[in-house]
Computed example of a mutant assay.
Amino acid sequence: MTAAVFFGCAFVAFGPALALYIFTIATEPLRIIFLIIGKSSEGLKSINPGEKAPSMRLLAYVSGLGFGIMSGVFSFVNTLSDSLGPGTVGIHGDPPQFFLNSAFMTLVIILLHMFWGIVFFDGCEKKKWYTLLAVLLTHLLVSALTFISPYSGLNLVLAYTILVLTGIWAFFVSGGSCRSLKLCLLCQDKDSLLFNQRSR
């Protein structure tokens, strides 16, 4: 049972981040370098002058995901190793879903760092200081939610609410629109959507 808990919680916490890494970062060596070292676009040009430097939005996404993965590993690795035993969670009145709740909270932290990175970079680029303040305050709020451990269901609901709102904000900041979301959900490109509208 301990191995099942270990692998289950590990995949809950790090599975989406691993999928994002495989499908959006692993194919480009420059993105992998930026994920690991987090240098600026000019620094990346000097590492590989022949390759085009990624856009600021892409750098924000990659660095946010990298920082989120590091944060998740540092915050969850000890808890994850404890899931292998020996011992039983809940024997002294603690919630028996401690490992699962911790895995879902780690997932929130990883994804939030990715969204915070996108919003924060945009705020710095456009000199919107209220954006930076909002990122800082939501970061402090989510960190404070981890103190509500006896009510772990409540802190997860609040953290996921902040995650959804920040994700929507990051989507529109990075150039998304309702139209592009519709194209994505319908698995269509722009030209085929225009053709379908004209043919009606």
Rank of each mutant, 00 (worst) to 15 (best):
V73A: 10
Y160E: 12
P86C: 08
W116R: 12
F115P: 00
M56F: 08
S71I: 08
K45F: 08
L112Y: 07
G117C: 05
S152Q: 10
T138W: 05
I37M: 01
L84T: 12
E125L: 06
F147P: 00
N78E: 07
I118C: 03
A159D: 07
E125G: 01
G64F: 06
F172A: 02
S41A: 13
L158N: 02
L165I: 14
T106L: 01
L165D: 03
M114V: 02
S46K: 15
H92K: 01
W169V: 03
F34I: 12
T161L: 14
N101Q: 04
T138R: 07
F120L: 11
T166A: 13
L163G: 04
L154M: 08
I168F: 10
T88G: 03
G123N: 05
F67T: 11
F99S: 06
D122F: 05
S143W: 10
S63N: 12
Q97F: 12
I33G: 01
S149H: 08
P150E: 09
Y151H: 07
P49W: 10
L145R: 04
T146W: 06
V157A: 14
R57I: 10
L59V: 05
I148V: 11
H139R: 11
N101S: 14
S55F: 07
T166Q: 15
L59D: 04
I109R: 09
V164A: 15
T131V: 15
Y160R: 05
M114W: 01
G123D: 02
P49F: 06
V77L: 13
L133F: 13
L163N: 11
F76Q: 09
S83N: 05
A144H: 06
I91V: 11
V108M: 03
A170E: 05
W169D: 07
K127V: 06
S152F: 05
P96S: 05
W129R: 09
A159G: 12
H113T: 01
K39H: 06
Y61L: 11
I168N: 04
V173W: 01
A144N: 09
A144S: 14
G72D: 09
M114S: 04
F34M: 12
